[in-house]
Amino acid sequence: MYHYRPGKQMNYMMLEVPARSENESFVRVVIAAFAARLDPTLEEVNEVKTAVSEAVTNSILHAYDDDRGLIKIRAFVEDKKLWIEISDSGKGIDDIARAREPLYTDKPELERSGMGFTIMENFMDEVVISSSPGKGTVVKMLKVFNKVAESSH
């Protein structure tokens, strides 16, 4: 289950950027740098960067349409776990189950493939989406690093 207690023991970071596409790579790099202390493999870093890129791109592309809102990113680390929250105050998602379906997109004309949520689910250990139409969307994700190494102890 996805749960965390951002308490004094847990290290965290917060970041806020305007919903502009040039910030996509910036947020990816920040999260990768923050996760580096957990000593992830290169593959794990790539998976986290891709999942973050999907959530941030969605906020830029779908949440605000053309007017520029803000995207908030929070991340917490503990042991081998990285929690990430990406939130916007945009238009929200009416039907989350449909949005999660592979290949579902409401913007095929912009060459979107509808694979964003599927990629997040494949690359992260958990993905929780909450959204209220007209208010915004929060995507919470959990990544557990070095799983194989840990279970072999």
């Binding site: 790579s25 912009l110 060459e111 979107r112 990629i119």
Partner: peptide, 13 residues
Amino acid sequence: TFMDSSGIGAILG
């Protein structure tokens, strides 16, 4: 060095 779902859409296009 990096690609996300935008790459799928762009290549499919």
